[in-house]
Amino acid sequence: MMKDWKDMYVQSDADMAEGPQLFYNAIVLKHFVDPKNVGEMDADEADGYALVGDPVCGDQMKLWIKVENDIITDIKFKSFGCPGAIATSSMATELARGKSIQDAAEITDDDVIEALGGIPEQKKHCSLLGINALQNAIHDYLLKKMEFEAQTDDEDDLP
């Protein structure tokens, strides 16, 4: 009996030496240390843009999308935030890249968390930031598209 406990103490010692896996899993850590799609786009290059903030913890995020034939062909983000915010933003952009606007608009924060293999409970609100930014950027794209179509419609009406 005593021996088992002793083994457990030694075991936990070894676990801790490798890092904070108990808190963030390996996939989350990978997206934190090596986030995908980090960067910016110029205004004329991006078809949709969003700036969102998390009023709860002060995190902030910018996200740009490039759209061709209703497909997100490129996506970039920058984030001032905790590891949870960086990793979930990275995963959100990975999930959205290559998807149609319609499919990308349906990605939820739960999809991001599932793709990451879970994140700590108190970090779940972080995953909303990336999703909000994605949805706002898609909204921005759709608005611009409508404006553009309205303009070209007007031009078509010219004699």
Partner: peptide, 26 residues
């Protein structure tokens, strides 16, 4: 930059520090 992000990097490199930042303790 966010304090917890720095702390996690430091932790991954085997350095223990702490922060008074928002998300660090949840």
């Amino acid at each position: 930059i966010d304090g917890e992000s720095i702390l996690l990097y430091l932790d991954l490199m085997g350095i223990c520090a702490s922060s008074g930042s928002a998300c660090s303790t949840g």
